[in-house]
Simulated scan of single mutants.
Amino acid sequence: MTGLHISDRQLWAEAVAGGESSFALLFERHVRAVYNHSFRLTGSWADAEDVTQQVFLAAWRRRSEVTLVADSALPWLLATATFAARGYHRSTRRWLAALRRLPPERSSGDDLAEEVVGRVDDERRMRRLLRAVNRLPRGEREALMLCLWSGVSYRDAATVLNIAEPSLRSRISRARARLARMLDTDAAPLTIEEEQA
């Protein structure tokens, strides 16, 4: 059995019973979404890797305590990533501040690989966007990140955030309007997907 047609709920139940292979399927199914969400939260690919590891470690350790929303583990995983990123950010804030005070490294003249340049540019744009997003009220920020950045349905996100779906839609609308005012539209690196139908 490939696991493609098995619901997250069934895989989670098998993982609770000790099925490591079922948990591995859940990991394969959702790791990219959690990693991308973590990058959007941290603005750093390396930090996103650390946060993603924390999320799946927490999922394994707490698998018997977790109640899935609908049949998907993704809303819980993304909400856990949000909390893990907050904790990660707090624990590394002083270290990063000290690192930023160091003088920049001098270039050796070697050309950087195209992938590295792309990743650095992604991080620069994401940090700019995160500065704006972090100025949003917490409820608007969480709704925007779950629904527009990570593709969680409005219904599932409303359940995870413990609010009514119309309230969630209102938060997203306000967040979009605030972001539009905060960011220079000509240079804005926004990659927020179109609102879900």
Rank of each mutant, 00 (worst) to 15 (best):
L148S: 15
A73G: 13
R128L: 09
W149Q: 14
R93S: 12
G87N: 15
V69M: 07
R86K: 15
R93Y: 00
Y88L: 02
A59G: 09
V31C: 07
C147S: 01
L78A: 09
S153L: 09
P75V: 07
D111G: 01
A98I: 13
H30V: 06
W76E: 06
R29I: 05
P137N: 11
A79L: 14
G139S: 11
R127N: 08
R125Y: 05
L99S: 08
F56S: 07
S107N: 08
F39E: 02
N134H: 14
D121S: 12
D50Y: 11
V133P: 00
R86S: 10
R131C: 00
G139W: 02
L112V: 11
H37M: 00
E28C: 05
R86I: 15
L96Y: 12
S153I: 10
R61Q: 11
A81Y: 01
E28Y: 01
S153V: 09
G118Y: 01
R29P: 00
D110H: 09
A113F: 13
D71L: 07
L136I: 06
L99Q: 14
P104H: 12
W149E: 11
R61S: 10
P137T: 14
L77F: 13
T80G: 03
G87W: 05
L41H: 01
F56M: 05
R128C: 04
D110P: 00
G151P: 03
R141N: 03
E123W: 04
E49S: 03
N134T: 05
G118C: 05
A143P: 09
W60L: 02
H30L: 05
E114R: 14
D47R: 04
A48R: 03
A58F: 01
R135M: 07
W60F: 07
A98D: 13
R131G: 03
H89A: 10
R40Y: 10
